[in-house]
């Protein structure tokens, strides 16, 4: 009767097995440092342009809307504060992670998927390498290091975007904007702002790897794996975001 549940439960189990192996491999030899650096460049440095653009415009539009809303209470001066809190706590981590998921979960899934369907994964095993150590762990480590860094960049650029709007549209003095922006932040905000992308990095990299390594059925299978990876990674990020958000809200309330 519950047969329809078998396949999703099996998939979840397989995913956690992959995740556990990937994490366990971090402390095990051999370490593929070259691969980690290549992935850090591809995932981290390669994502900077998209993070700069989305960060700037999301910060700008937030300042635009918040400035108008706050004007009703005569509090336009507080724009920097609102922009900074929302960016650091929520929008920065989520937006960066979703952008990187769109760019890299898909990239990882298609790369590994192509390798799977052309038997390169089997060849790797036949030639003495564990694909999880060589392919999955370096992508996980690289994403876990680079995603928090990208989030910091996104947060800052978002604040700059907010400042441009605050100055040009609402005529706020720069000093006032940046003072409110800076003072609004507490260690708790910075903590969750960095913890979130670190955790989302697991979703971004491992979901891509999972769907890539599961790909079958030629190029069509690779396409399917890519789409599934982006959708799953993005949804997981939003779901995790609510739970982590709830934990931090409860903590700061108590």
């Amino acid at each position: 009767m519950l047969d329809f549940l078998k396949s999703p439960i099996a998939a979840i189990q397989e995913f956690f097995e992959l995740a556990w192996q990937a994490v366990r491999n971090i402390g095990r030899k051999p370490h593929y440092l070259d691969d980690i650096l290549i992935q850090m460049d591809s995932i981290g440095v390669g994502s900077i342009p998209i993070v700069l653009l989305t960060g700037f415009f999301s910060g700008a539009v937030m300042a635009l809307q918040m400035g108008r809303a706050l004007a009703q209470y005569g509090q336009t001066g507080q724009t920097g504060k609102v922009v900074s809190i929302i960016l650091v706590r929520e929008l920065g981590p989520v937006l960066t992670s979703v952008m990187v998921a769109g760019r890299n979960s898909s990239g990882i899934a298609s790369e590994l998927g192509s390798m799977k369907v052309t038997e390169q994964i089997d060849a790797m095993r036949a030639l003495g390498t564990d694909p999880l150590k060589k392919l999955v762990t370096p992508r996980l480590v690289a994403t876990a290091i680079m995603l928090p860094c990208l989030t910091v960049i996104d947060d800052f650029v978002g604040m700059v975007g907010g400042w441009v709007i605050a100055k040009l549209v609402y005529g706020l003095p720069s000093l006032q904007y940046w003072t409110f922006t800076w003072r609004a932040l507490e260690w708790n905000d910075v903590g969750q702002g960095l913890l979130k992308p670190f955790l989302y990095a697991f979703a971004v990299s491992l979901v891509g790897c999972y769907y890539g390594l599961k790909a079958s059925g030629g190029t069509q299978g690779v396409g399917r794996a890519t789409t599934q990876a982006v959708v799953a990674a993005s949804v997981i990020i939003f779901v995790l975001n609510l739970f982590i958000g709830k934990i931090f809200v409860s903590q700061s309330a108590s």
């Binding site: 052309t118 038997e119 390169q120 089997d122 060849a123 036949a126 030639l127």
Partner: peptide, 13 residues
């Protein structure tokens, strides 16, 4: 496996 050589169907380079 180190004592076996294998050529895959699509070369798998």
């Amino acid at each position: 496996r180190s004592r076996i050589g294998m050529l895959f169907q699509e070369s798998a380079l």
